[in-house]
Simulated assay, not measured.
Amino acid sequence: MKSRGILLLGTIVLFGVVFPVPGRAMERTDAIRLAKKAEGGDAKARKTLFRKARKGDVWAEIVYGDLLARGKGGKEDPSRAIIWYRKAAMSGNPVAETNLGAAYYFGQGVPDDYIQAATWFRKAARQGFPAAENWMGSLRAAGLGVRRDSFRAFTWYRKAAHDGETAAMTNLGEAYMEGVGTVRSPEKGVGWLQKAAQKGDAEAQAMLGSAYKYGQGVPRNFSKAVDWFRKGARGGDAMAAYGLGVCYARGQGVSPDAVRGYAWLTVAQAMSRPGSPTAEIILRERNYLKRRMSPSDISRSELLAGNLLRRFSGKP
Rank of each mutant, 00 (worst) to 15 (best):
S276W: 03
P111C: 03
A125C: 15
G23P: 00
I281L: 14
N307R: 11
I6A: 05
S313P: 07
P111L: 04
R148Q: 12
F154S: 08
W59V: 04
V226K: 01
Y214D: 15
E133G: 13
L68A: 08
Q252N: 12
R286Q: 09
S301P: 09
Y157H: 11
A233E: 05
D257G: 11
A161N: 14
I115K: 11
Y212A: 09
L303Y: 07
Q127I: 04
A117G: 01
L308R: 00
K195V: 12
G232L: 08
T266N: 07
L144H: 08
F106G: 14
I281E: 15
R284H: 11
D257T: 08
Y242H: 13
D257W: 06
L9C: 03
K123C: 14
A167E: 15
Y214G: 12
A142E: 15
D57R: 01
G92F: 04
S79H: 08
E187I: 11
Y288K: 13
E285M: 13
R147K: 13
N93I: 07
E97Y: 06
S91G: 09
R220V: 07
G173W: 02
S3A: 11
A69L: 07
D297H: 06
S3G: 14
T182F: 05
T98K: 01
E27H: 00
A153Y: 01
R122M: 11
R300I: 04
G215F: 06
G107Y: 02
G107C: 07
A103W: 01
P277T: 04
S185L: 06
G314C: 03
S272M: 09
A263F: 07
A88S: 04
A69I: 02
Y105D: 11
N221Q: 11
A240Q: 07
A263E: 08
I32W: 00
Q205W: 04
G10S: 02
A279S: 12
Q194Y: 02
A25H: 04
G164A: 09
D112F: 15
D237S: 15
A258N: 13
A270H: 03
K195C: 10
D237P: 13
G306N: 06
A117N: 03
E61P: 03
N99M: 01
E39A: 09
A60E: 00
W156T: 15
G173Y: 02
L34A: 04
A168K: 02
G251Y: 05
G245M: 13
V190N: 03
Q127A: 10
K159C: 12
Y104T: 03
W192A: 11
R310K: 12
A31I: 00
R54V: 06
G92Y: 04
Y288G: 13
N221M: 14
A38Y: 00
R51S: 10
S210G: 11
W264G: 05
E187V: 12
A204L: 14
L67D: 00
R300N: 07
G179M: 07
I298P: 02
R310W: 05
L303R: 13
R260W: 06
T48F: 05
K37V: 05
R4V: 08
W135K: 09
A305S: 10
Q205E: 10
K52G: 09
K290E: 13
M207A: 13
